[in-house]
Structure formats: structure tokens, C-alpha cells
Design a protein around this nucleic acid. Structure first.
Lengths: 188, 188
DNA sequence: CGTATTGCAATGCGAACGCATCGTAAAACG
DNA sequence: CGTTTTACGATGCGTTCGCATTGCAATACG
């Protein structure tokens, strides 16, 4: 056999290229040839690691999902309100990492509208997010309907993410909007 | 010449088919052949009315934009708060008409992230919407920062629209969320 | 009543697509 | 040390794509 390669690492490199193509030109610009060119590898290599284009796209989706999850997991704070605020900020395209990942998420989000196979994991992730947000909201402001407030907060940041991505809202304005919204929600 | 046909009407029929394809299978499923089949006309006819695929897509975008605008324009109320609420509801996929148009809007919205030519008219429409919302907010609750509240409200309903589209939030839950958010924003 | 123009159907073309197949260099393994 | 297995690169196939071209029936128009 040829030299043993790190299979997962190679898949990650290609998945990375997929995400870059999506971020730059959208989901429908993803083709085996474009991805291969973006990753600077042969098309045969791409096919070697992914049996079908669909499998490749699904992997890319899991990849950015994990990355967003990792970024969220890296956030810490003892104060629930600060914690909550930091998590919401992390969902917006404010940091360089988030600015790369957000367009990819947006593309998959739109695709999920017409592709149930994407909707399922997306709903699950959102569900976990809502549960976590509700917990934080409860910690800051007991009582009320934390579950509903959490869903509202999530819809708010999701919409805000898109507004920032299309250049409708600046980063700084987005931050202010989140702060204001947090004030509204957490003030009983 | 053959019988005089209503040029605009024909374009509208084809644009309609484009929207149906987008709603059912996404933007990247739009091809001249699919659209022709969906409209139940020949491909030659589609080409006769649209010089390029791009022109066809742009027309479809303007078409649903006008339709949403028409739906919004049909909303009336003397009470600013009721008016505001009705408009926000109209932006969500609650009515049959909105349920058809929302997936199309979502697809164009995602595409706007990577295509500036879509972003521009989208930003303009959003800008007008924000101005109108701000006016209504001022009418209900003078003072504060109506412009900011309007942007927040718009981001909120946009995000909520997506959540409803991917099946994360039910229509009834969405209505409750909008009502609650309105309560938060309009209570000074 | 020609006739010129319009509205379209049909066909063709080159490019790009996903995917299958084949060949092969190389190293892990018995 | 041979053999087998792995990791590709290369090539080809059938399909679909956007778009250009061509042909023609139909009718508004002078």
C-alpha cells in the first residue's frame, strides 16, 4: 500500500474546500471539479474520499456544525447574563471565524427549506440551543416563559445573522441590537 | 404576425413557474427545461421571453417581491398597533399565499449573501420596511429609538420565517412569539 | 391580398456535470 | 521478498446544462 494517510484529516481538508466554495459562490457552485480545484487536489482524490457529491455535502454540513459547536463550547462565563450575551454574539458573523462559517450556515439553512434531510439535524441543533438558552434565561430572570423567550431570541439572532450577511446591518449595529433585545427579554 | 399576445402576462406565467420550482426544489433546481415543464410550455417559449436564465431569475425575484409588497399593501388598519401586528404576520408563512412565497424569498435571501446584485434591491426593500415599521412604532410608543426597534423587529420576523419554514416553529407558536415580541418592544 | 413580422417549436452545440472504470506507484505485511 | 492492498490520477461515459440557430405557421398591416 502507499503511505498510510490520515483519512479523517484528508476528508476534513476536502470538506474545508467545500465550505470555502459555498461561502464564496453559494451551494449550487459546489461541483466535484470546483472543490478539487479549491482544495488543490485531483478530482480522483475527492472521489476517493467521498462516494457521492451528496455525501460530500453532508460531511461539509456536519463539519461546519461541529465548528460552530466548538466555538460555542469555547465560550465561558460565570455570570449567566454575560454567558448568554457571549453565546448570542458568537452566533453572529462578528469574528473572522464566524464570518467564514456564517455564509455556509445560511446556505444550508436555505437548502433545509426544501431538503428534509438537512432540516432534521438543523432542528435538533436548534432544539438543544433553545433548551440551553432557556436555562440561561431562567438563571438570569426566573419565572416567565423561558422556553418561548429562548425561541424568540434564537429567531432574532438567526434573522440578524442574515441581515448582517447581506450588508443590511453593520456588525456594531448588530451588537447593539442584541444588547437591546437582551435588555427587553431579561427585564421582567 | 401570429396573434398578438400579452407579453407581460406570458412573462408572468413563466416567472410563476420559476417560483414554483424554487419553492419545491430550491434555486439550483431552476433550469430552462424544468421551468418550461413546470409552466407546461416549450423551452423555446421560455427563451423567447427571457434572453438569459439570469434575466429570468431576476424577473422571478421582482415578481415575488411585488407580490409580497401587494400583500402588505392590502393590509389596512386604523389602529397603528393592529396595523403593525398584521404586517408582521403577513411577513410570516401563515396564509396560503405567504406559504408559497416565503420559501422563494428564503432562497433569494440566501443567494443574496453571495450575489451582490440580489443584495442591493433586498437592502432597499428592507430599508423601506424599517422606515415604515419605525413610523408605526413611533405612533404606538413615541420616543425611544424607533429605527433600532424596527430593525430588531424585522430581523426577528425574518428569522422566525426561516424557523417556521424548516419546521422548527409552528404557525401558532410563531404568532404567539410575534405578539410577545410586540409586547416587549411597544411597552416602554 | 400579398407580405413582412411576430411567436414560437425544434434542433444542435459545446461545456460542465456526477460518476464509473481502469491503471499504477508505492508501501505495509506475511 | 513477494504479494497484496491502498491511494490515488487519468480517462471516458451518458446526461444535462445554457444558449444559438433555424424554420415555419400565423396574422396584423399596407
Amino acid at each position: 500500500m502507499p503511505k498510510q494517510v490520515d483519512h479523517d484529516e484528508r476528508r476534513r481538508q476536502i470538506g474545508d474546500a467545500v465550505c470555502r466554495v459555498i461561502a464564496a459562490r453559494g451551494l449550487d457552485a459546489v461541483s466535484l471539479r470546483h472543490v478539487a480545484a479549491e482544495a488543490d487536489v485531483s478530482m480522483g482524490r475527492v472521489q476517493h474520499y467521498f462516494a457521492t457529491k451528496d455525501e460530500m455535502l453532508m460531511f461539509a454540513f456536519e463539519l461546519i456544525s461541529e465548528r460552530v459547536a466548538a466555538r460555542l463550547g469555547a465560550v465561558h462565563s460565570d455570570d449567566p447574563r454575560t454567558y448568554l450575551r457571549a453565546i448570542l454574539f458568537e452566533l453572529l458573523p462578528l469574528s473572522p471565524a464566524a464570518r467564514v462559517e456564517a455564509p455556509v450556515l445560511a446556505a444550508f439553512l436555505a437548502q433545509a427549506v426544501v431538503e428534509p434531510r438537512l432540516g432534521e439535524p438543523l432542528r435538533q441543533g436548534n432544539g438543544e440551543m433553545v433548551a440551553w438558552l432557556a436555562g440561561m434565561i431562567s438563571a438570569v430572570r426566573p419565572g416567565g416563559d423561558p422556553e418561548r423567550d429562548a425561541m424568540g431570541l434564537l429567531a432574532f439572532v438567526d434573522g440578524l445573522m442574515l441581515q448582517v450577511l447581506i450588508g443590511q446591518v453593520s456588525s456594531s449595529a448588530a451588537e447593539e441590537l442584541v444588547d437591546h433585545q437582551l435588555g427587553l427579554v431579561l427585564t421582567r
